[in-house]
Computed example of a mutant assay.
Amino acid sequence: MNNAKILGVILRGLPNTLYLLVLSFVFATILGIFLAWLDLRQNRVARGVAHVYLGLIRGTPPLLMLLLAYYGLPVLLKGIGINIDGWTKLTFGVFGLSLGWSAYLSEAFRSAYLSVDPGQLEAARSIGLPDRTTFWQILIPQATMIALPNIENLVIGLFKATSLVYVLGLYDLYNEASNLSNQTAGIHQLRIFILLALTYWVIVLIIEGLFRLIRNRFAAIRA
C-alpha cells in the first residue's frame, strides 16, 4: 500500500473533521460570549450561574463530555417530553464539543475584555460618545486583538479534539486512519499514523496562517 492510497483513505474523514471544527467553534463562540457577559454582570445570580457552568465544564474531560452528550442528553430531554432520537452522531459531536469549548472561549473573552483600560470608557463619555458606540468601536476591537492568540490556541485544541468523536463511531481523520490500520492487520500502522500526524500538522499550519491574516487585518484597520 503506497502513501497516496493511505492519504486518500485518511482524507475521506476530512469533511466530518472540518464540519465538527467549524460548527463547534461557531456555537462555542456564541455560548462563550453569553457566558462571559453573564460573568461580567453585577448580578450575583447571573455570575453564580456562569461560575457553576464554567467550573463544571472545565472540570469535565472532553471525551466524557461527548459521551454524556450522546448517551445522557436524550434521556434527560425525554424526561421533559423532548425527543432527539433523530439527531445524527455528527450533531451530538458538535453539541458535545461546543459545550466543552464554550467554557474556555468564555474565559478568553472575559479576560481580554478586562484587559482593556476601563479609563477609555470614561474618556469617551467625556467627549460625548454614547456607551454603545464606545463599546463596539473602541473596546471590542481592542479586546478582540488581545483575545486572538488565546482563541487561536483554542481553535487548534478544538481541531485536535475532533479526533475524540471516534467514541461515537464517527469517521473523521483519526477514525479513518485507525480503521485502515486494523484492516491491514497493523502491517502499515506506523506509516499510516505518521501520515495522519502530518495531515493534522498541515491543517494546523493552515489555521495558524488564517489567524495571522486576521491579526494583520486588524492591525491594518487600527493603523
Score class of each variant (00 low, 15 high):
residue 12 R to P: 11
residue 156 I to V: 15
residue 18 L to V: 15
residue 158 L to A: 11
residue 148 L to A: 11
residue 5 K to D: 15
residue 140 I to W: 10
residue 120 Q to Y: 06
residue 203 I to Q: 02
residue 95 F to R: 04
residue 157 G to V: 03
residue 43 N to Y: 04
residue 221 I to R: 09
residue 125 R to P: 05
residue 8 G to F: 02
residue 174 Y to L: 08
residue 135 F to M: 12
residue 168 L to S: 01
residue 71 Y to I: 13
residue 18 L to D: 07
residue 172 D to P: 01
residue 124 A to S: 13
residue 90 L to Y: 09
residue 137 Q to R: 08
residue 211 F to D: 12
residue 25 F to P: 10
residue 93 G to D: 04
residue 35 L to H: 03
residue 162 T to C: 10
residue 134 T to K: 03
residue 148 L to Y: 08
residue 165 V to S: 02
residue 198 L to N: 04
residue 40 L to Y: 00
residue 2 N to Y: 04
residue 107 E to V: 12
residue 204 V to I: 15
residue 117 D to L: 11
residue 146 I to Q: 13
residue 87 W to M: 14
residue 100 G to M: 07
residue 193 F to R: 01
residue 203 I to W: 02
residue 44 R to Y: 12
residue 182 N to Q: 15
residue 98 S to F: 06
residue 175 N to H: 14
residue 67 L to N: 05
residue 54 L to Q: 09
residue 185 A to Q: 12
residue 118 P to G: 10
residue 58 R to M: 11
residue 8 G to D: 13
residue 28 A to R: 01
residue 165 V to E: 02
residue 24 S to M: 03
residue 112 A to Q: 05
residue 52 V to H: 00
residue 138 I to Q: 13
residue 209 G to C: 09
residue 64 L to I: 15
residue 222 R to C: 12
residue 162 T to M: 07
residue 211 F to R: 04
residue 19 Y to T: 14
residue 157 G to W: 01
residue 40 L to P: 05
residue 33 I to K: 01
residue 38 L to V: 11
residue 189 Q to G: 13
residue 133 T to I: 08
residue 98 S to K: 03
residue 141 P to H: 07
residue 112 A to D: 04
residue 11 L to N: 10
residue 172 D to G: 13
residue 89 K to P: 12
residue 207 I to L: 15
residue 120 Q to H: 12
residue 62 P to M: 01
residue 142 Q to Y: 00
residue 144 T to D: 06
residue 41 R to D: 15
residue 36 A to C: 07
residue 107 E to Y: 01
residue 39 D to I: 00
residue 193 F to E: 06
residue 71 Y to R: 14
residue 85 D to F: 00
residue 97 L to N: 11
residue 84 I to A: 08
residue 71 Y to S: 15
residue 5 K to M: 12
residue 209 G to M: 09
residue 96 G to H: 02
residue 2 N to S: 11
residue 209 G to Y: 00
residue 127 I to S: 03
residue 173 L to P: 06
residue 202 V to C: 13
